[in-house]
Design a protein around this nucleic acid. Structure first.
Lengths: 182, 182
DNA sequence: CTTCAATGAGACATCACTGTCTCACATGAG
DNA sequence: CTCATGTGAGACAGTGATGTCTCATTGAAG
């Protein structure tokens, strides 16, 4: 009964997001393997963290691709983004600026590419007259990121039902960014 | 030239929020004191963390009190809350569920009291017809918390101007929670 | 059945961090 | 000026985490 590398990464992400100081022994346990096996998979803690970051980038890129940001109404595109990112919110959270588990993603690295896709979506929405002009696109990305993390935590803590989370998030976010409110 | 205890706590909060694994030596440096002096102030790392938590509770309680949650229009009360919490967003972030630096704040501890004040505000807004009925009050608190953290980070990283942050946050939040949008 | 690869348990050495302590220096008050 | 207090630098011992490695066990394939 082999635990897949991906399962290990997912488990590591979840436990490290919640407790960044978790020892390797406990990370391995959380993934259902022994510490020796974990060390066979990755040469060091630092390497695990780097691999986690790369995995998170890959998963996020795929999620954003599946959300097809350039297609259709910007409002619907935001809905699709949230639906796509919710299942990987914990991985996504590792990449967002708030979590320094992953040290200093480089300014021109994969993260800024992904960030740029979301900024472009917001700007498309502004040009289409759907989104507010007075809020910076960067804030849209930050707000989305932080609410994804927040919703993920709320679900994790049982404060929000898993099936309600996407809707709660998207309603609040869209309500906040849509034009024509004041 | 003595660094006040509060300054040390503030600096420690900021650095630990960003890098939970920061060694005591680096925490002390960030606070402008030596490690020996830090150890004279607190007997251990665990004690520092406990004191930080208590300080965060005190500061948050004071901020919420200054925001006068029960007075006037719920919308204006939310504005006051954001204005009051922004300057202490990093301390507040230590208390919010997202950050396990402070391990497991007890269910009936000070945090749930503060949480309860915000929940009561949202419910007051619902009853007054100002806030949406379909979003849970708990989600309001989670969204506020996570956006406070997100905005604080955006400012820290230079993505959002410090003077624009409160407005960006409150506009998005209020836009999302107000009634009569759809 | 045998063989092979993967895995877990556990031992061990090393290292970073932590807490403790001493001593020299700096600063402020009288 | 002296004295008292606070501080920083640095040494040291202890601890927990980390990485490395060996050996026994397990499970799957042929």
């Amino acid at each position: 009964m082999t635990t897949s590398r991906e399962d290990v990464l997912r488990a590591a992400a979840a436990v490290l997001l919640h407790r960044p100081r978790t020892p390797m022994e406990d990370i391995a346990r959380a993934a259902g393997i022994s510490r020796a096996t974990l060390h066979r998979m990755v040469p060091s803690r630092a390497a695990l963290v780097r691999e986690l970051a790369a995995f998170a980038v890959t998963q996020t890129r795929a999620a954003l691709a599946s959300a097809r940001l350039e297609e259709g109404e910007p409002v619907e595109a935001v809905r699709r983004v949230v639906d796509a990112l919710m299942p990987i919110a914990d991985l996504y959270a590792l990449l967002s600026g708030e979590n320094q588990l992953v040290e200093s993603t480089e300014p021109d690295g994969p993260w800024s590419e992904l960030d740029g896709l979301l900024i472009a979506l917001y700007r498309r929405g502004q040009e289409a007259g759907a989104f507010r002009l007075d809020l910076p696109a960067e804030w849209f990305v930050d707000a989305l990121s932080s609410m994804l993390v927040g919703a993920s935590w709320a679900v994790h803590d049982g404060r929000l039902a898993r099936r309600d989370a996407p809707r709660a998030l998207v309603e609040l976010l869209l309500g906040g960014i849509r034009r024509g409110q004041s």
